[in-house]
Design a protein around this nucleic acid. Sequence first.
DNA 1: AGCGCTCGCGCAAACGCTTGCGCATCCTTG
DNA 2: CAAGGATGCGCAAGCGTTTGCGCGAGCGCT
Lengths: 347, 347
Amino acid sequence: MTMADVARAAGVSVSTVSHVINDTRVVREQTRESVLQAIERTGYTHNTIARALVTASTRTIGLTIPVVTNPFFTDVVHAIETETSTASYTLLLVDSSDDPDHELRAVRALHGRRVDGMIIAPTSSAPGSALAYLAANSVPTVLVDRLASEDFDQVGPDNEEPTAALVQHFAELGHRRIGMVAGLPGLTTTKERLRGYRLGLARCELPYDAGLLVQGASQAEPARQAVHDLLARPNPPSALVVANNLMTIGALRALREAGKRVPDDVGLASFDDVEWADLISPRLTTMAPPRLELGRTAVQLLMCRLADPTRSPRTVRLEPTFIHRESCGCNPTRAGSPEPPAAREKP
Amino acid sequence: MTMADVARAAGVSVSTVSHVINDTRVVREQTRESVLQAIERTGYTHNTIARALVTASTRTIGLTIPVVTNPFFTDVVHAIETETSTASYTLLLVDSSDDPDHELRAVRALHGRRVDGMIIAPTSSAPGSALAYLAANSVPTVLVDRLASEDFDQVGPDNEEPTAALVQHFAELGHRRIGMVAGLPGLTTTKERLRGYRLGLARCELPYDAGLLVQGASQAEPARQAVHDLLARPNPPSALVVANNLMTIGALRALREAGKRVPDDVGLASFDDVEWADLISPRLTTMAPPRLELGRTAVQLLMCRLADPTRSPRTVRLEPTFIHRESCGCNPTRAGSPEPPAAREKP
DNA sequence: AGCGCTCGCGCAAACGCTTGCGCATCCTTG
DNA sequence: CAAGGATGCGCAAGCGTTTGCGCGAGCGCT
C-alpha cells in the first residue's frame, strides 16, 4: 500500500496522488475523487518518514525532561503537548533521568530522528554535554525551567526574588533561624533559589548559617534524609524553605518522624505547588511557578525560532504566584486567596 | 554532512562508511579508523529516518495515554520509558485527552511515522476507533491498564476482586451503606470496578442501592461535585470506595467542605494509591495497582509480539496490593505494612 | 484554420541510507 | 608456479515520497 499502489488503482501517476494528498496543485475534481476512492479502497496510509526524507522536515519536536514522574514536569509537558499538537506537530519524548550522559544520548537519538526542534529541561551545561552538542549541530532548541545558557532561547520561573520572599515572610513572622532544603547541585534552579535564600536572609539582616542548609537532591527520599539530619543538629531551624515539590514530600515525612508539628514547631513553605497542598493539615504555603505557561511559552519560543532561525536568543522569566495557606504559621484570610473554591474550607 | 561527505573525506565508498557505522561487515582496521576520523572531522550525524526508509524499521514505539498529568499513567510511562530505552527503542508519546477522536488522530500520526509498535491505554474500543484502525492496519499493539479487547495483547490490573475486597473490608467493619465514586463510563476499568463493587455488596448480602453510587468522570473536580451531591442525599453512605487516584482528591475536598470527618463520619478507601497517602490525616487506605510492573509487562508483551507477530494475543492481569492505612477506620498494626519506612510514623 | 493559453497531468530526479552482487588483491596450498 | 579461497571493498538498485519541468489536449480568439 504505497502511493504507487494507489496510483495504479486510480489509474493516475504517483505525482497526482501526492498532489491530491497534499493539496499542492490543482487536480480535476473527477480525478481527485477517484484517487480518494483508491486510497480508501487500498487502505493506504501516508508514509511520513519517506516524506520527511525529501522535505527535510518531520513536523516533530523532541522533548527531554529529567523525570516524567515529577508533576511539575508533567504539567509542563502537558502544556507543550497541547500547544504543539494544535500546531500539528508531534512530540518525541525522552526521559533524561537527570543524568548528563543519558541526556546526551537522548539528544543524539532525537537529532538522529531529525526532529525539527527541541525543548529541553537541561541537566547539565558542561562542555561535552547535550547543550554543547545541540549548539554544535545548530539544532533549534529552547530550554525550559532550567535556564542554563543565554545562547539558547529559554523560559523559566523567576527563582531568586520569590525564594527571598519566602524567607522574608518567615522573618516577618519572627523567625530567626530559617533553614533551607536545596535541590540537586549544578541545576541552575538550585543555584538561583539558593541565591534567593541568601538574599532574603541578607535583607532581613539575618546571618547566613551553613548549619541551616541541607541538600535534598531534588527528590523526596534524599530530602527526607537531609531534613532528618538537619533536625538532629544542635540548633535546628524554626522554619524551613523547601526548594521544590518532591522534596516537600520528604521534608514532611521527616518532620512527622521527628514528631515536629507544622507550623507550631517548624514553619514550612515550599517553592512549587503540589496538587494536594490543600488536603493536608496544615495546608501548605507555596510559591507556585506557572507550569502551563512555562510549557506554552517554550513552544512559542520554539515556533519563533523555527520561523526565523537567525534571531538572537531570548530569555523569558515567568513570575510564580505566592499561595498563602497555613504551613507558614499564618491563617490568611480566605477571601482573595488564589485557592480554587474546592479548597476554601478548612478541614 | 551526509554519508557521502564522510566517504569522500575518508577516501572510501558510502557502503564502507555504512558498514563501519553499523558494524555489518568486516572492514580493515586501518580503513575503519580513517572512516571514524572522517566522521569526527565532518561532525556527521546518522540520519535515522533515511535508514528507516530502507530498513522499514524505526526502532521507535508509539505510546498513547489519556492524560500525561495523571501520576498513575506517568508511572506507567516511566516504566515503559526505562524498559524501551534499554532495548534501544525511542518513545513517541501522545496524549489522547481521553477523547476517541483525538486518540484516533494520535494513532494515525504515530502509524504515519511508522512506529514499530504501539502501546496504548485506550479511550474507546468502538468501531471506527483507534483500536479498529490498529487492527485494520495490523500494527503490533498492546493495550495497557484498560483491557478493551482480547484481540490485542493487553495488561492491566485486576479490578473486580480487589474492589470487592474494599467493599467487604468496610462491611466487616460494620458499614451497611457503602457508596462508590465511579469513573468515566465506557472505560473498561470503570466497568470492572463497578462490577467489583456490586460483587462485594452481594457477598456481604448488602443491597445494591443506586442512591449510593455517583459518577466522578475519573477526575478530581467532577468527583468533588459528585461526592458533594452524594452527601446531600437523604441517606448518605457511611463509607466510600473511590475508583481512582484523581477522584480521591475530589472526594477528600468534598468531604472537607461538607464538614465530614474521615473516617469517623465517612470511611474512605480508594483504588489506586497516591504519593501523599501517608501525609494526610488520616492516612489513606488504598488498593494499589503495580504501576511499574504494568509498564514493564506492556513492553515485554510488545517485544514478544514484534519478535513473533503471529502469536495469539495474551491478556495479563496483575494483582494490586492492599495498603492498609487509616482512612478506612482501622488502625492497622504498623509492622508488616507495605509502607516505606518514611511512612510508618503517625503524625 | 492557426495561434497561443490555460489546464491537467506524467516523468524522473532527487532525499540519505542499506545491502546483494561481484571484482580485485593477497595468501595458501599442492 | 598455478589454482583456489579468503579478504576487503565498490557499484548500483532500491526504500516511498516530493517537485521542477514539460507535454498534450482543449479552448477562445483573430
